[in-house]
Design a protein around this nucleic acid. Structure first.
Lengths: 374, 374
DNA sequence: TCTCTTGCCGAAACCGGTTTCGGAGGTTTC
DNA sequence: GAAACCTCCGAAACCGGTTTCGGCAAGAGA
């Protein structure tokens, strides 16, 4: 078996990086001193430190992350493990989110190492191996669950991380989140002001923490408006169009159907259009809908979907910043940010044209027409 | 300024990795010998090599990529730079694609380093810096353009890469692609068999190479069926629903409108439903549509969209494999794969219920009805 | 039997950084 | 004025690998 060809830079100009040795001899210092100067060791004169900094700047010196890593165990890389199921792969905001993370990371000289996993156990395995191989210094955890195995794991392993979202037991966690609960509360209030009194809610993904929060926000909204919560107005989880349509149907088939429905998730809200059409109801007039996420399809619906939009790019950017600071040693309690979603006041909600009873009648009529069996 | 806290593994069990020194002393060899044995140097006895391999296995030794990198310049990391525009961020297959890449990479012990860029110049800058910092050994180039600046750049810099798609000047390129041209040709043939004689085409993204290929495929289909190409049957680029609707309208407003339209891109084909509805035409009966990509929304349309589906996960997986082999020194000409898209025979196409003239009449009637000005 | 290869491994330099240790020179203290 | 103490930098070890070089022992050729 012969030696692997060494792929030498094939004769072309060899573009030597400036190494710490170059910098040291340029400054007439030893590389140890240069290293300490750049890393803010206290035993370096302020004057020297400045001189080194300046020289590094002019020579364009940038330490090679991997050479540092072999001693420090840090590569200046953020880790992100995406759970990608068999075929739920279509995430509307993934590219935006990644753009936020990678751009913020880049400005600090960090990069993003990404892997995917099939399930939670796989995720833990991936994180462990990324950490052991020093391919990532810490992790961003998207889609936080109510109780999240990743958090326990990373705590045990003493690996820095930040979560996108919140969680039941927040101790020791740094996070960024968008206040979905406030959005849901505002949605209820807006509908109440327009005259709606029976306001339904369709939950988001089961087990995911945002789902709890948004439901809480819905309840808070009811409370503020003096409305009594009614279990028959709250539908099960729906995170796609088909389920959204089904859950809307369920709500509308009750004895006292809602005149407005708040959705935890845009993709589910798209299903309301399907359901409404099949019942001969017009969204925004006969049935009001307010949702959450701000997916682009919402703007293309007839009528355009009223929703709260989340800036995924900004989220990614903030999370990258928080994680870098966490890795550098800042306390998790100092690294918690909540921002708010932006209300997109479009046309899928309005003053109720029909009462709950009139809607019920329409649904019954349609039911008979269709010859459905419930 | 005081010393940064060194974040020592805080007392917990220190899970020492096995290093090459551990392995060497275990085997009573020097680390140099162990290294050469594992890297298939010819001056190591076969017997020794096997012994070392076995010991590495049992001790669970895995060389630390970064330590290797400082000498070899290779980190076992694939690079991917995504161009994410201001707000076109929603890519339906991104997660699937990433899953394919990262899973394949993982099985070889490689990882994926991802960054995003705002434009081409930015992409080149990112690649350059990733390469200089040794954060990626080579690159996967998605969305290949007809003439692609990235390819020239990487050639000049002598950095390994593979392209997802093909390009005008393929010299020195390794690639994986799905034969979109075959799909388009088959679409035309299928429509011809059903009786369609005026078959339109809506192009894909301008400047992108797949666009040329799919248009060629459309023309090839016409030729095989003995149909004469008619420029008025070919619409401009459309890559989203709105443009797709507009281009469909344009085609239908001609003197001899098509009875069937082939779309280069699913998202554009969704616009055909909008256009058809506004004209009172029913997709699959009055107007046949066949498209390409296999986005999930297609299945939810009424009627479900006939299309060719692309396995993005498989594409990612193959590209990772090809790139790793390219980095290891295999010749680009040996690393070229083309697979075919899978036909999803759904209900948006069928035998033409209306003739071209009948469609034209309907369009005119609707036009007058709407009081449009063209 | 002596030289010349050849096969195979140890020793040591090297890669680009970080970190520890020690000591020269100037200041402070008594 | 000597001892004690800082301040600040050089020297060298170290991290976990790779690669070069040289030399020993066994086999081949003369």
């Amino acid at each position: 078996m012969s030696k692997v060809p060494s792929t030498r830079p094939s004769g072309s100009r060899v573009r030597k990086r400036v190494t710490i040795d170059d910098l040291a001899s340029y400054l007439c210092l030893t590389k140890g001193t240069v290293s300490r100067a750049l890393n803010d060791y206290p035993d370096i004169a302020e004057r020297t430190r400045r001189r080194v900094r300046k020289a590094a700047e002019t020579l364009g010196y940038q330490p090679m992350a991997h050479a540092q890593a072999i001693r420090t165990g840090r590569v200046r890389a953020l880790g992100l493990v995406l759970e990608v199921g068999e075929h739920d792969g279509s995430r509307p905001f993934l590219a935006e989110f990644l753009a936020g993370v990678s751009q913020r990371a880049a400005t600090e000289g960090w990069t993003l190492t990404l892997t995917t996993a099939a399930n939670t156990a796989d995720t833990l395995r991936q994180m462990k191996s990324l950490r052991e191989e020093n391919k990532a210094d810490g992790f961003i955890l998207p889609r936080t669950r109510i109780t999240d195995a990743r958090i326990n794991f990373l705590h045990r392993e003493d690996v820095p991380f930040v979560i996108y979202g919140r969680t039941q037991d927040p101790s020791g966690c740094a996070w960024y989140d968008v206040a979905g609960e406030d959005a849901m509360r505002d949605a209820v209030r807006a509908l109440y002001k327009l005259g709606h009194r029976r306001i339904g809610f369709v939950r988001g993904g089961t087990g995911l923490n945002y789902s709890i929060l948004r439901h809480d926000g819905y309840l808070a909204g009811l409370a503020e408006c003096g409305l009594t919560p009614d279990p028959s107005l709250v539908a099960e989880a729906a995170v796609n169009r088909a389920d959204g349509a089904a859950q809307t149907m369920t709500l509308l088939r009750t004895a006292q159907p809602p005149t407005a429905v708040v959705f935890a998730v845009d993709r589910a809200a798209l299903g309301a259009y399907v359901a409404a059409q099949s019942l001969g109801l017009q969204i925004g007039r006969d049935l009001s809908v307010i949702s959450y996420d701000g997916i682009p399809e919402g703007a293309l619906m007839q009528p355009p979907l009223t929703t709260f939009s989340v800036d995924s790019r900004h989220a990614g950017s903030r999370l990258a910043d928080l994680l870098i600071r966490r890795i550098r040693g800042e306390e998790p309690t100092e690294l918690r940010e909540i921002s708010s979603a932006q209300f997109l006041d479009r046309s899928s909600h309005g003053t109720p044209a029909l009462t709950s009873q009139q809607i019920a009648a329409k649904v019954r009529a349609n039911h008979i027409l269709m010859g459905g069996t419930k």
